[in-house]
């Protein structure tokens, strides 16, 4: 019986390994097909001469795909508008990216509630299987390789934030790769918000570790008071470069991937050639697509890693060797 269940688990993994690329592969073609309608318009736009008004160019379609909007689109099945909401002059509409963030939150809640209950049920004596096993690998990875090795002592306090930010970014990145998906991490507002969280957590950790006096003393970088007029502005700007670098990195990486895939697909529409489509557009966009899956994991990892690194640097007690890790 045990052997049977082991076989079953192995089969599941194999099926999952097969299905996941297929799903993502289907995503490429569905996205391509859904954009093809726009692509026809783009090709006609080229016919009509450059700078023709009214027609969509390839650039417009790409921008439309990347930017946030008030519509959920399911070409060719139509679309539906999302409610607009303006409170006190602030546009608080529910947009496409907000919907995807909710979706990510729901997915994560479902998975982690299930896994939490699973562990309650089986206790700590039995080895976990299935989804719980995967999640355990992720949690252990964040705990040991990211939090513990970068923050060191007291890393448990920062585990909830690091783990949340990792899985949230990961799911948002991957949601952008499924059919009709949009990656909310390709929106600079989302990434800026996430790095503002990191910024405040870093500052709080620094104040907790050194006290308010030590925190302010750190702004002078331990130099002679005559140099303070130069050092304090530099250190002050240095505080803000870190979150801005985090913001731009995640935003630009996720946006660039989508632009590259769509540009490759649009080569065949602009040149209007089947040969280009078969031998250039499709194979190259599939390759970039697989690279994008890797980048989705890598960028989630890097955001978490750098957050942990900044928290660790801010709360570390040895001031002697602080690497310049902020650019």
């Amino acid at each position: 019986m045990k052997r049977f269940s082991a076989l079953r688990a192995g089969d599941f993994t194999r099926i999952a390994i097969l299905i996941i690329p297929l799903l993502f592969g289907f995503g490429t073609f569905a996205n391509a097909a859904s954009d093809a309608g726009h692509g026809e318009a783009a090709a006609h736009g080229e016919d009509g001469g450059h700078g023709g008004h009214g027609e969509e160019s390839a650039g417009d379609v790409i921008m439309h795909h990347i930017l946030d909007s008030n519509k959920m689109e399911f070409d060719p099945f139509g679309s539906f508008a999302l409610p607009k909401l303006v409170i006190g002059g602030f546009d608080l509409s529910i947009t496409k990216h907000v919907v995807f963030m909710w979706l990510a939150a729901i997915i994560l809640l479902a998975v982690f509630l299930y896994v939490g209950n699973y562990y309650k049920r089986i206790g700590s004596r039995k080895a976990p299987g299935g989804v719980a096993n995967v999640m355990e690998a992720i949690v252990q990875f964040i705990r040991l390789d990211v939090a513990k090795s970068n923050i060191g002592e007291g890393y448990e306090r920062h585990m909830p934030y690091l783990l949340t930010v990792f899985v949230f970014i990961l799911v948002l990145n991957l949601l952008g790769l499924i059919p009709y998906g949009a990656s909310a991490t390709g929106n600079i507002n989302v990434t800026l918000t996430l790095s503002v969280f990191t910024f405040f957590i870093t500052q709080v950790a620094a104040v907790k570790a050194h006290g308010i006096k030590g925190y302010l003393a750190h702004l002078t970088a331990g130099t002679h008071p005559a140099l303070w007029i130069i050092m304090i502005p530099i250190e002050f700007i240095g505080l803000f470069t870190k979150p801005i670098a985090l913001t731009i990195r995640l935003f630009a990486n996720m946006t660039a991937g989508h632009i590259v895939i769509l540009s490759l697909i649009f080569i065949s529409f602009i040149l209007k050639s089947f040969i280009v489509a078969v031998f250039v557009s499709v194979p190259f966009s599939v390759i970039i697509y697989l690279l994008e899956i890797f980048i989705a994991f890598l960028q989630a990892f890097i955001f978490t890693m750098l957050s942990a690194l900044f928290i660790g640097l801010a709360s570390s007690h040895d001031e002697s060797h602080e690497p310049e890790a902020a650019h």
Partner: peptide, 9 residues
């Protein structure tokens, strides 16, 4: 990876 990410930034 960290160094590459910083340069990439």
């Amino acid at each position: 990876i960290i160094a590459a990410a910083l340069i990439e930034g």
